[in-house]
């Protein structure tokens, strides 16, 4: 097998059988409120066919291996949604930048 073949055959999230040997962390926790809102937002975007489930999934795949490994589950979802909305021209980078600044100021956070 060539050195790079596995990169072509397996996208970052296609990890079935990938040589992982770590123990499973069997813990339970409720979702944070923003995580549940994020889940609901993506469901609503799917209902309206603005961003469907497959587009969202592909969006998380396209984040690349580093982000796939470091971001938490719903962090990936919201970044994927944001990228999908930008790619479709539904939102613009400026609109997101202005809005995140406004929201941050609401919480007295300096961006």
């Amino acid at each position: 097998m060539s050195d790079t073949e596995h990169l072509v055959k397996h996208l970052p999230n296609d990890i079935g059988g990938a040589g992982c040997h770590e123990k499973i962390s069997i813990t339970e926790r409720p979702l944070y409120p923003w995580e549940k809102r994020c889940h609901a937002l993506l469901d609503v975007l799917d209902y309206h066919k603005i961003v469907n489930t497959e587009e969202k999934r592909r969006g998380t795949e396209n984040l690349g291996t580093e982000m796939a490994g470091k971001l938490t589950y719903y962090e990936k979802w919201i970044v994927s949604a944001s990228n999908c909305l930008l790619q479709k021209g539904i939102l613009t980078p400026d609109q997101i930048a202005d809005k995140t600044k406004e929201v941050s100021e609401r919480f007295n956070i300096k961006m």
């Binding site: 809102r37 975007l45 719903y74 909305l85 539904i90 997101i96």
Partner: peptide, 17 residues
């Protein structure tokens, strides 16, 4: 609790839509 970057993004996208 100060919202994290991703929560700010979630609020922003929802409000824009």
């Amino acid at each position: 609790e100060v919202p994290c970057y991703y929560e700010i993004l979630e609020i922003s996208i929802r409000e824009l839509l």
